[in-house]
Design a protein around this nucleic acid. Structure first.
Lengths: 215, 215
DNA sequence: CGCCACTTGATTGGATACAATTCAGCCGGA
DNA sequence: TCCGGCTGAATTGTATCCAATCAAGTGGCG
């Protein structure tokens, strides 16, 4: 993200971001400035700036004169984000496949393997994220990468809820698609990889959309 | 953008945004907090929050302990933004075409006409922006729209420089493409419109990329 | 009994004051 | 002449204090 920022606001933002991503702060929970300020032994000014930053990242909702809440997405918003991802991530992958090194590909294969092995939800989420984001690593489009990462962050809590719901046996489609994706990457099949990724995201979107019990 | 915000930071952000878009604040110019604060008869706190917001929008670059500058894009960044737009705006248009009303289409036709008529650079820029953004209006994807608008904002200054460079006689390709686009919209040809828009943006990107004298 | 204006407490927004950091210019020395 | 460190003014970052705003609870009135 923005690394070991020496600024107070940066540290607060990073900590809050982590707390939101890990689920310690659930969607809809209120964030009180003073409370955060005391917890981080600072004043409210850096907290306010951190909240501004997180709002820009889509992790927090700010209401003037009212307060800050961990962003809560309804189904329509989730679907919209997935549909945007369906366009952006294939581009990132397409730009990247040709430039991935053999080491990169080996690493991706290892991640795909690890994803299939782990039963833990949090490991699954982390590895799946690593797998996809690293496959875009050589795209050389920093703004695009930043946007994609922000989307993964804002979706994280809903991905977790969904992953818990489907259970380990519900992941076979993911594993299958990852294997196809890896094959396309290995043969440097740019268009094939793009299309597979698009379908991968689209299928996930559709399944998520049917799951009414997440929202 | 976010209308007549009652918050001080919102007013400052809006004013600074306007100043950047109109070119009153050129790319690379430094923005001093105190100076802005006195100009708006407020303290530095709201100014800082406004700067944070504008940074998130990509209009301002913030460097810790150093200062704020109007964002300056190099050619690579411009190209990247255009390439992202090539994927996002066709989606917005594709979602919108089917839902545009006859009044919407008439309005778009009027804008396309006005674009061809005006010799003024600023009018051209404003009308062209209106034309495209309004064609996406019925997409019903608010986040996508917000992203697209931010891109138009961050590109505005470079669009202006480019438009000045090519002169009125250099706009024939734009006019031609707008006419084709209007025809596709009128026959509700979703895929045709998407493809035409993609090519429209791509051609602009390529011409912009050759123009080394803008950066 | 229900409704509305008011009060009160908590919370956020903003102003002022102070600390930390940067950077340009200067000085001394090799 | 060039280089390195020093210094102080300018600027940003943070803390503290006060004002504005909102929400919940209260009491009076119809």
């Amino acid at each position: 993200m923005d690394g070991g920022d020496s600024l107070s606001s940066g540290r607060v933002a990073e900590a809050l971001r982590r707390a939101i991503l890990t689920g310690d702060l659930a969607p809809g929970s209120r964030i009180r400035q003073e409370e955060v300020a005391t917890r981080f032994a600072t004043s409210r000014i850096p907290v306010r700036e951190a909240l501004r930053q997180l709002e820009a990242e889509g992790l927090v909702t700010l209401v003037p004169h009212s307060g800050a809440w961990v962003a809560r997405l309804d189904r329509a918003e989730c679907v919209e984000i997935y549909r945007i991802r369906e366009r952006l991530e294939p581009m990132a992958l397409g730009e990247s496949v040709g430039a991935l090194t053999q080491e990169d590909i080996a690493e991706l294969a290892g991640l795909a393997e690890a994803i299939e092995q782990t039963p833990e939800v949090d490991d699954f989420l982390r590895l799946d994220r690593e797998f996809h984001l690293r496959s875009y690593r050589r795209a050389n489009m920093p703004r695009l990468m930043a946007m994609i990462e922000r989307f993964w962050n804002t979706m994280q809590q809903y991905r977790r809820a969904y992953t818990v719901l489907i259970g380990t046996e519900g992941r076979w489609a993911v594993h299958h698609e990852h294997r196809l994706l890896m094959e396309a990457i290995q043969r440097r099949d740019r268009h094939g990889a793009e299309e597979l990724l698009r379908l991968h995201i689209r299928r996930t979107r559709r399944e998520l959309a049917t799951r009414t019990d997440i929202f």
